[in-house]
C-alpha cells in the first residue's frame, strides 16, 4: 500500500513513524544521517512564526525542515 501522508501533513503535537523517504540524492543521505530512517519515531513540535519551517523531535534532537522538504518524507500515523 502506498503511503499517502507526508511529514508536512501532520499536526503539531502528533507523533509518527517514518515509512519511506522520497528525497533523492545527497539530501536523502543527509536526512538518513539525521536519524530519519524508516521506522524511526518523529514528533512534530512547532512551526516557525510564519508557518515554515517546522521543527521535529528526531531521536532526541530538535531539527527544523522546510515544509517542501518534509513533504517528501512519507509517514505512518500509528
Amino acid at each position: 500500500m502506498p503511503h499517502t501522508l507526508s511529514l508536512a501533513d501532520i499536526p503539531i503535537g502528533a507523533s509518527v513513524r517514518i515509512a519511506e523517504i522520497l528525497t533523492p540524492g545527497n539530501n536523502r543521505r543527509r536526512l538518513l544521517d539525521l536519524g530519519l530512517v524508516p521506522g524511526a519515531r518523529v514528533e512534530i513540535i512547532r512551526r516557525s512564526p510564519s508557518g515554515n519551517p517546522t521543527a521535529y523531535l528526531i531521536k532526541g534532537a530538535v531539527i527544523a525542515l522546510r515544509n517542501e522538504n518534509a513533504a517528501q518524507i512519507m509517514v505512518d500515523t500509528n
Binding site: N27, L31, P53, A55, A61, V62, I63, A64, R66, N69
Partner: peptide, 11 residues
C-alpha cells in the same frame, strides 16, 4: 531551486 535546509535547534 532553494536547496535543502536542515537546522538543528540545540537545547
Amino acid at each position: 531551486m532553494p536547496s535543502f535546509f536542515v537546522l538543528e535547534l540545540p537545547p
